[in-house]
Design a protein around this nucleic acid. Structure first.
Lengths: 212, 212
DNA sequence: CTAAAAATCACCCTTTTACGTGAGATAAAA
DNA sequence: TTTTATCTCACGTAAAAGGGTGATTTTTAG
């Protein structure tokens, strides 16, 4: 019989902490060694103690779980962090995985799934809940489908969306109005729109500027 | 000594249910008489049983907590429903209150606050958590501050945002291009913008069309 | 090194917008 | 009823966008 897996829960919701504790209290394979309701407390925990697995909420009051994950893994690269979120949004899943999280659990996970995630991640593999995986795939597909624009085009797109005219943009970037106009036309062509209103609408609806 | 307050928890997150149960298990004044992880199960509960207070999550898989609240209150007007949410968004708070909820709790509420909310609401008053109240105030202020436009102006605004030109709008509404242009000018003036890009941006950023 | 992609600029023409000003008709509120 | 708001339309001008085509330089990637 090996030692129980040491689990740290980072979540600002007392209910969630209590809930996980309650769900896992009869488990001999997992031991909750600490809880933290914000990023600061989480960092303090690791000064004196350690954990095998961290359940990491995405929305913390002081620092996002995404940033905290990246920060912790810089200091303690061997940590196994499992994201814990209410959200199925693909963006969150993507960012968490990019930050180095080894797992992604939704807060409606069953006891069984929680235990499974802990086991899988502790054995060195990744565990992403089916819904989160689906959302991630959707996200990646969407990203793939969204037209790609160049660096300069993005620069100009931002200014158009902010409401600047071609001449103002030209002034700001020290280029000719005709150049700005060219970029604008290319944007229309790439994003498949034919006027400013539709361009701005497209950007807002797809949160297009969040990409690249 | 009076009977314990009968509490029903409606939330699709097992962790939350377990968490609340764990937090309240030592309480003699409150008794959890049931749990439901979706709207259907919640409705079924009330066929055979009853409750004094309902903890209602906003995000349910089948029906939003907002709609479920309105629906339940139609059938059982004396129910005391307390919204339970991760979100501080003012819109949610507003809509929940509009649907008839008597309270609004955030999921990071302490045991103390949960008990207080139950007591206050059971005594016939409303309980809205401080953060939610602040968000609600902000929301209401925002609504107040947002410029008011006329029915016709809104009609035209929608079409502009959809990317139609003045001439197309005129065609669609059987009015002259000059009239459309007048409305457009008034919109610019009222919403304090000076071109299409900023107009569309304003509408999207403020979800302006959701109002009035 | 070379081909491809990106960024730059120019010119032309039409349509649309942006801004101003004024004004009649109608409906709603005081 | 009388004021007020809304909706309607007109005219004029300048600026900006929308569209097409073509061409040079610079950067990037194979």
């Amino acid at each position: 019989m090996c030692n129980p897996i040491k689990l740290l829960i980072v979540d600002d919701h007392q209910m969630i902490i209590e809930g996980i504790q309650s769900l896992l209290e009869d488990q001999t394979t997992v031991k909750i060694v600490g809880t933290a309701t914000n990023a600061k407390l989480c960092e303090q925990f690791f000064i004196t103690q350690t954990a095998d697995i961290v359940f990491m909420d995405i929305n913390l009051p002081d620092l996002s779980g995404i940033d905290l994950t990246a920060l912790l893994l810089k200091k303690y690269p061997t940590l196994n962090i499992i994201a814990l979120s209410t959200f199925t949004q693909g963006t969150y899943v993507r960012k968490m995985i990019e930050s180095g999280a080894k797992g992604y659990l939704l807060k409606n996970a069953s006891k069984f799934e929680i235990l499974k995630a802990i086991e899988v991640v502790h054995s060195g593999q990744k565990y992403i809940s089916p819904e989160a995986q689906e959302a991630l795939n959707y996200e990646l597909n969407l990203q793939k489908k969204l037209p790609k624009i160049t660096k300069r085009e993005k620069e100009i797109l931002v200014l158009i969306v902010e409401g600047l005219t071609n001449s103002h943009i030209a002034e700001k970037l020290f280029i000719s109005i005709d150049t700005v106009d060219s970029h604008r036309k290319n944007l229309y062509s790439k994003l498949n729109v034919n006027n400013t209103a539709r361009l701005v609408g497209f950007v807002n609806e797809n949160k297009y500027l969040d990409y690249l």
